[in-house]
C-alpha cells in the first residue's frame, strides 16, 4: 500500500540477491516425479534403478527446500522493512489458503453432487465408518487448534516456556490424530473397503472419495506437523522475537485451516448420512 513507502526510501530495501534454490528444487522435483512415473510403469527407464531415482529425488527435494528456507531465514533476519515483509507474507498465506480451499472445495463439490444429486454413489451398509475413535480424534484436533492459538499468543507476549509447552502439546495431539486416522484406514482395509477392491465395485466411488478426501486432509495434517516441528526448533534456536515471528503465525493459521477443513469433512462424511 501507499503507506508502506519505506522500501523506496531505504536504498537497500528489496534488492534481492540471486538464489540457486528455485532451479535446484525444480530439478529435484523433476527427478522425484520422473522416478515415480518410471516406477509406476515398471519401465526400467533409469537403468532399472527407478525406485532408487524416486527416493533420491524425494530426498533432494526435501534437502533443496530446506536450503531455500535457510536462505530466506538468513535474508529476512537482516532486512530492514519489517512491516512490508509481514504484510506481504500475510497476504501470500491468505492467497495460498484460497487456492487450498478451492482444491478441497472441488472434493466437497464432487461429494455433495454425487451423494445428493446423482445415482450410483452407494455407501456400504455393512461397514462401520467413524465411531468413537474418530469422534475423539476430532475433539483432539479441535483442542490442538486452541493450544496452537495459545502458543502463538505466548510467542507474541514473549513467554517462551509456555509457548514451548503448548507447541509440543499441539504436535502431540496432531500425531495422535494421524495415528487414529491410520488405525481407521487399517481396519477399513481389513474389511475390504478400499478403492482397488473390485469385489466391492458398487462402493468404489464412495470409497475413492472417502480415501482421497481424508487422505488429502491427512497429508495437510502431516505438512502442518512438519511446520510446527520446524517452528519449535527455530524457537529453541531463538529465532523469534515478539515482533518478528511470522513462521509462528503461518504455522498456526495453517493448523486452523486444516482443523476447519476436518470439521467440514467430519460433518459431511461421518455425520450427514443420507
Amino acid at each position: 500500500m501507499s503507506e508502506h513507502a519505506s522500501h523506496h526510501d531505504d536504498p537497500w530495501s528489496h534488492v534481492p540477491p540471486p538464489s540457486p534454490w528455485p532451479v535446484l528444487f525444480t530439478g529435484s522435483l523433476c527427478v522425484a516425479v520422473f522416478g515415480t512415473l518410471a516406477n509406476m510403469f515398471e519401465s526400467g527407464f533409469f537403468w532399472n534403478n527407478d525406485s532408487l531415482v524416486m527416493f533420491v529425488g524425494i530426498f533432494l527435494s526435501l534437502f533443496t527446500l530446506m536450503g531455500w528456507g535457510h536462505q530466506i531465514i538468513k535474508e529476512k533476519a537482516i532486512s530492514h522493512d519489517l512491516d512490508q515483509q509481514q504484510s506481504d507474507l500475510k497476504l501470500f498465506t491468505l492467497m495460498f489458503f484460497v487456492s487450498e480451499a478451492l482444491a478441497f472445495g472441488t472434493i466437497f463439490g464432487y461429494y455433495y453432487i454425487r451423494a445428493f444429486a446423482t445415482v450410483g454413489f452407494v455407501r456400504p451398509d455393512d461397514i462401520h465408518l467413524g465411531g468413537w475413535p474418530v469422534a475423539v480424534a476430532t475433539i483432539l484436533l479441535i483442542t490442538s487448534s486452541l493450544t496452537c492459538e495459545f502458543a502463538h499468543k505466548a510467542v507474541e507476549h514473549g513467554r517462551k516456556s509456555q509457548a514451548r509447552l503448548l507447541l509440543l502439546l499441539t504436535i502431540t495431539l496432531g500425531f495422535i490424530f494421524l495415528y487414529a486416522q491410520g488405525k481407521e484406514y487399517g481396519e477399513l482395509i481389513i474389511q475390504g473397503f478400499w478403492p482397488g477392491n473390485y469385489e466391492a465395485v458398487e462402493y468404489n466411488a464412495f470409497s475413492s472419495l472417502f480415501y482421497i478426501s481424508t487422505g488429502f486432509h491427512g497429508v495437510h495434517v502431516a505438512t502442518g506437523l512438519l511446520m510446527l516441528i520446524l517452528v519449535w526448533l527455530r524457537m529453541e534456536l531463538g529465532h523469534f522475537t515478539q515482533k518478528r515471528h511470522f513462521s509462528v503465525v503461518a504455522a498456526s493459521w495453517y493448523w486452523h485451516f486444516v482443523d476447519v477443513v476436518w470439521v467440514l469433512l467430519f460433518i459431511s462424511i461421518y455425520v450427514m448420512v443420507k
Binding site: 487456492s99 478451492l102 472441488t106 472434493i107 482397488g196 465395485v201 466411488a205 482421497i212
Partner: peptide, 25 residues
Amino acid sequence: QLMGTPVLGAAVTMLLFDRNFGTGF
C-alpha cells in the same frame, strides 16, 4: 488463476488416480 487452477488440479488428479490406483471417480 488462483481460484481456477486448483480445481483443474483436482480434476486431473482424479483422472490420474482412476488410471493408476483403481479408484472410481
